[in-house]
């Protein structure tokens, strides 16, 4: 019926999976940078900054990533440029990741701040010094496991970019299925590849979290 061997299928999917990895890394790193900027706005003094970030997070966590992708795709198009799918995908995923990361990190900063704020205030440190020397170094430590955990969501999130036409693993799955008429096998393999990408991240997040808990209990 088809000239595709299982090996052909696998090879095509793995080649496409490279783009899943690239997009994941770009989105995660970009999201981390934007997320860090948002975090400083969120925990900074001022009033407009925190309010803006709150609204930002509310919007990006309260709407489907798919919609964000569509809006990026067609929204950028309004500027009259022909938007390539990868650009819309990258922009949307970066902004989306930033919302989640900033929220995760804010939780970590607040968890630390609750106990340490008064201690460091009593030592006569200013706001920036407290942040720089007391709160952030500790927050950074407890932020690692949930941050690694979120990277799994990013990898899975990239699957939706297939819908706006970015050719990564999921899109390749659809293309190969249309060529082979073997959806069970193809999507099974696609799922397996995603699993191989995500599971190590999930697992290391769990292990890091457990280590951190043990370390905390020994204090």
């Amino acid at each position: 019926m088809s000239d595709f061997t299982t090996w052909d299928i696998l090879r095509n999917l793995l080649l496409a999976a490279r783009w899943t990895v690239v997009l994941s890394v770009v989105s995660f790193v970009g999201g981390a940078i934007v997320g860090a900027l948002l975090l400083f706005m969120r925990i900074g003094k001022g009033r407009a900054g925190p309010a803006f970030v709150k609204a930002y997070v509310e919007i990006f966590q309260g709407t489907p990533l798919l919609m964000q992708l569509f809006l990026a795709f067609f929204g950028l198009g309004l500027f009259g440029i022909d938007v390539p799918a990868w650009l819309a995908a990258g922009v949307a995923l970066i902004l989306w990741s930033a919302a989640f990361l900033t929220e995760i990190w804010r939780g970590c900063v607040e968890a630390i701040a609750r106990g340490q704020w008064e201690a460091s205030s009593s030592l006569g440190m200013g706001y920036v010094q407290q942040m720089r020397y007391v709160i952030l170094p500790q927050a950074l430590r407890i932020a690692v496991p949930p941050t690694v955990g979120f990277s799994v969501q990013v990898v899975k999130g990239t699957a939706l970019t297939s819908i706006i036409g970015f050719v990564e693993l999921s899109k390749a799955g659809t293309i190969v299925t249309n060529a082979t008429f073997e959806p069970f096998k193809v999507y099974g393999i696609v799922a397996l590849i995603y699993f191989c990408l995500c599971w190590p991240l999930s697992k290391s997040s769990q292990i890091l979290e457990r280590k951190l808990n043990v370390a905390h209990r020994n204090h």
Partner: peptide, 23 residues
């Protein structure tokens, strides 16, 4: 649990809708 949490919803959907008829 691990299988679901480590694969995209979209692929789960495709597997169920397009893949399961094979069974």
């Amino acid at each position: 649990v691990e299988m679901i949490r480590n694969t995209p919803f979209l692929i789960q959907l495709f597997f169920i809708f397009f893949g399961l008829p094979a069974l």
